[in-house]
Simulated scan of single mutants.
Amino acid sequence: MSGRNWMMRRLVIDSIRSDPEWMNGNYTSQPRSLKFASVFFAIATNGGTQALHKATSTRQKADAFLDKRLNDAFVGDANDHLYQWDASRDYDASIDLEKIRAKVLAINAADDERNPPELGLLERDLKRVPDARMMLIPGSDSTAGHGTTGQAAFWKKALVDVLQQPPMASN
């Protein structure tokens, strides 16, 4: 856990903990910073750059989009959110990749804000997995950044082609 991904999580944690309404976790109502930080994190790390720009191509559209997000119903607990975000501080998905014996298909999106493909981390680490393949969904004004991989419409047609490619392992 590093880079922008960790910095954004840390900002969520610090914004809640520094909110006087949090009261060191002894609040009687949810601190306002919880919803604000959650909306901020979601916009900053999900939605896709092109799609978000298309949807909010003017300041007025951007303000309306943001106002809607901030006014939408929100269910959450500040202490639960803190635990969730803080629990990722030492997460490292690259440990023991060589031990994986199952076929692996890693799908990422070109416009993924949390796991940006331009860093090359996924491609580098998948070479350590004996039978791994990778699919990179091109970014567009209809993809959703980090959320794209959860939408089969973006990857199901290309799945057969990717599975026929040779594994990425370098050995």
Rank of each mutant, 00 (worst) to 15 (best):
Pro116Arg: 01
Asp67His: 10
Ile100Lys: 04
Met8Gly: 07
Leu34Arg: 01
Asn71Thr: 12
Pro130Lys: 13
Ser57Trp: 05
Ala44Ser: 15
Ala51Tyr: 06
Tyr91Asn: 01
Pro31Ile: 01
Asp86Ser: 15
Ala153Asn: 10
Trp85Thr: 06
Phe41Thr: 04
Ala93His: 09
Asp86Pro: 01
Lys157Gly: 04
Arg17Pro: 05
Pro117Met: 05
Ala62Lys: 12
Ile137Tyr: 08
Ala55Gln: 14
Ile95Gly: 02
Ala153Leu: 11
Leu122Ile: 08
Val39Tyr: 08
Ala51Pro: 01
Val160Ile: 06
Val39Gln: 03
Arg133Tyr: 02
Ala87Asn: 12
Ile43Tyr: 08
Gly145Arg: 05
Trp85Pro: 01
Ala152Trp: 12
Thr148Gly: 01
Glu118Ala: 11
Leu159Ala: 08
Leu136Arg: 13
Ala37Asn: 03
Gln151Ser: 07
Leu119Pro: 00
Ala152Phe: 10
Asp90Ala: 14
Val129Lys: 00
Pro138Gly: 04
Ile43Asp: 13
Leu11Pro: 00
Trp22Gly: 07
Asn24Asp: 15
Ala73Phe: 13
Val160Arg: 13
Phe41Ile: 05
Lys99Cys: 06
Thr58His: 04
Val104Cys: 00
Ala73Ser: 15
Leu97His: 06
Pro166Gln: 11
Ala87Lys: 10
Lys127Cys: 05
Ala144Ser: 12
